[in-house]
């Protein structure tokens, strides 16, 4: 464990908590893409299948459980409890356009052709593009609530910090996982224009609006 990965995990945890609290406290999931949340729940499900078979540390197991519980709780709130506030008219990105190519790629490009490894690879590739429905929804509505932009900033920062962690681990341990690194770079690049808007607008107290 290094400080970059710890900060990355905490940023990820913060993002998940921010979103869950936003939906719970405002009793509304307006402006939030349910499809992205379903994809994230799928990412954690396919990545943490070794939760009970491969104990790393209390921290590792606790975080995996928290991510799983919070992501499913968010999906539940959005599609059941606060379904009336779910903006399905703007959340129209076709998830199959992501899941199918990512599933095929996981079969073709992986470290080991075993079920657990292919599912892990699938989760890595899927996580890289899982935010697209959310970014697409914001581009359609042309704006995002400030709390949603904080959620996205924390979520985008997590994988950016993981990239720093991978550089650090490469130079200190000689460890690197090309699949995770390439997917992590793609994932972070997708946030770039949002990062720009967040820093130039939200941090100046303005509403996050996309140029129409």
């Amino acid at each position: 464990m290094n400080i970059f990965r710890l900060l990355g995990d905490l940023s990820h945890l913060l993002a998940i908590i921010i979103l869950l609290l936003k939906i719970w406290r405002t009793r509304s999931c307006a402006g939030v893409s349910g499809k992205s949340q379903i994809l994230f729940a799928l990412v954690f499900t396919t990545r943490y299948l070794d939760l009970f078979t491969n104990f790393i540390s209390m921290y590792n197991s606790a975080m995996k459980l928290i991510y799983l519980v919070c992501s499913y709780a968010t999906v539940f709130l959005m599609y059941f409890k606060f379904k009336a506030t779910y903006d399905s008219n703007h959340d129209t990105f076709r998830m199959e356009f992501l899941v199918v190519p990512v599933g095929g790629l996981a079969f073709l490009v992986n470290h080991d052709f075993t079920p657990l490894e292919i599912l892990w690879t699938f989760s890595i590739y899927l996580e890289a593009v899982a935010i697209l429905p959310q970014l697409f929804m914001i581009s359609k509505t042309g704006e995002a609530e400030t709390i949603t932009s904080h959620y996205l900033f924390a979520l985008g920062s997590y994988r950016a910090l993981y990239i720093v962690n991978w550089v650090f681990r490469f130079y200190t341990e000689g460890f690197f996982d090309l699949i995770a690194i390439v997917a992590g770079c793609v994932q972070t690049i997708l946030y770039c224009d949002f990062f720009y808007l967040y820093i130039t607008k939200v941090l100046k107290g303005k509403q996050l609006t996309l140029p129409a």
Binding site: I56, M63, H111, D112, Y162, A180
Partner: peptide, 10 residues
């Protein structure tokens, strides 16, 4: 081989 490396990252 890569899968010997324990996946310790979240």
């Amino acid at each position: 081989h890569n899968n010997e490396i324990i996946k310790d990252e979240l």
